[in-house]
Write a protein that binds this DNA or RNA. Sequence first.
DNA 1: CTGTTAGCGCATTCAG
DNA 2: CTGAATGCGCTAACAG
Lengths: 334, 334
Amino acid sequence: MRPTIKSVAAVAGVSTATVSYVLSGRSGKDGSRSGSGVAPATVLRVQEAALALGYRPNQSARAIRTGRTNLLMLSLTMISDPWALDVSRAVGTAAAQRGITPMILADTDWRVALKRQNADVTFIDGAEEPGDAELLAQAARLQRLVVFSDTMEPEGFDVVRPVAGSSCDQAVDHLTGRHHRVGCLISSTHSTSTLDIRFGAYTRGLARAGLDYRDDYVETYDRDGLSAFDAALRLLQRADRPTAIYATTDFAAIAAIHAAQRLQLRIPGDVEVLGIGNTTEGERMTPSLTTVGPEGFFDGLAAFLLDRAENPDGPAGILEFPWKLIVRDSAPSV
Amino acid sequence: MRPTIKSVAAVAGVSTATVSYVLSGRSGKDGSRSGSGVAPATVLRVQEAALALGYRPNQSARAIRTGRTNLLMLSLTMISDPWALDVSRAVGTAAAQRGITPMILADTDWRVALKRQNADVTFIDGAEEPGDAELLAQAARLQRLVVFSDTMEPEGFDVVRPVAGSSCDQAVDHLTGRHHRVGCLISSTHSTSTLDIRFGAYTRGLARAGLDYRDDYVETYDRDGLSAFDAALRLLQRADRPTAIYATTDFAAIAAIHAAQRLQLRIPGDVEVLGIGNTTEGERMTPSLTTVGPEGFFDGLAAFLLDRAENPDGPAGILEFPWKLIVRDSAPSV
DNA sequence: CTGTTAGCGCATTCAG
DNA sequence: CTGAATGCGCTAACAG
């Protein structure tokens, strides 16, 4: 049988209340709050008893009393995406110091995350469908929610969103400036509104540069890791292959670079590649990835999530990150 | 205020017990177990009340009563490793149908997973240090544990392990058969005992082939994704670069292929590459990866974990998977 | 056959 | 330092 606070109390010869005080640290000389203060000898006896029995507080029981689980849930639709990895890493680092454990719900519809509501705060990456807002608003009445979305407004839940500004347009101009054959990789899972920001910049940019829009220069990829690679291969194996590729995520851009290298094409000599998201993998790969995105985003997001986890009752807000074009080696300036 | 079973009962005009019966499905005509059976009209009223209030059962309260959380925890030391992604995907698929939610504890020491024991079963990938067994055995008294380990024996916790046999030796022979310059990529985080199986095969294989062991043909990589890429670059940028690379994980082998392609080397023409783990990413990439590993491992592991989650009280056992050499395009047969 | 009462499980925390 | 109440849902035993 698993040891409970009661067995510890019995062994130490004290009440369960005392055990609770000792084990949750409200025992020391400073005795934060009124009234507490357990004799050092008792503290020792309790600690020994707990150790001897191998006692661990039952998290469920604790949660039922305190209303806090010290869990932070990340619902990430594609865990192999470097963007998701960055989120995970940043949150993991920030949470470690605060006694909060981040858990990842991977590759699942976020709707299931809403049912299983046992985290102090839940982060949802990418909900854009029209009907989603209502679902989220309803779920937000029962749990703290932070939603990454290009288009939504807070409704009980917090919203984290990019401020694209003209960054995507600049990015496309960056490519059309020296290239007439500019291909595009778009995600099949992004909603139309997200695509409006990312893909719309592509079509508008072509028009601005006086280039024709060509269906066959646009390839679609989906969640699957190899799907983006294959999409890029299709683009690059054409006789009149694009000499520049605009990808709507860093993930796809990185896959495109690998695909190009597999075909023995040089980056940026033979093909230039540009992504969106400013992930660390893109920053640190060789060649480094030219991208559109915010700076300091992941740490900022992590801090925001931890704040929400610790103050679950504050008002819902918006966390905005301005995007800009970040020029690196895969599509350099000159 | 969050709706509880009590508020639902009040709205529906019944007792909390009835609500519980209805919502946990013990209401229908079959009424598994004695006594139960709620009138259809009542069922409807309760369901409507629950819906109207947006009621969700409190998972903590439920867990405290039933002793089950319906959570399955995966402690994965490197989430970007395709091996970990395969584990996650397989478990996610298998768990979805059974009302169990898999959660990932990423990039953390598994010791923290043991403290936060709120899952029906916890999977730990890679614990090999001598002192670990004792820690795990102790933790296993409080929670169901499944440990992936080359070397450990069950001690209250289950063990999942490969049976390497001569597969790694065959793999090295496969390379030394046509190559005199065979490099090696080894993980800095694997324990010495794991390395004995994987790395020992390399040194023994060189000896068998009459080749000298060279320090400078062995490069080390660590957890970091780019680290393996850089290690491979170092190997491949030598004047007398290896013409074959034996990597101790698929992860490193894939990075090596990317590194080679970046240097415009052909796989397998200029460099042959071989990994360990038999991941789906290796299988499906271009060129497909020659590797050492089990077949059907991930689904087998997933089934094993779900079984443990559902029968937490069974005896601890061993799940073994025989490894074999799987020849594909990155290091073909002829 | 239908529904209720009452107690349980664990840790927390206020009032003494 | 302790007694006792508290939070939420489950379920055995019982009553209509």
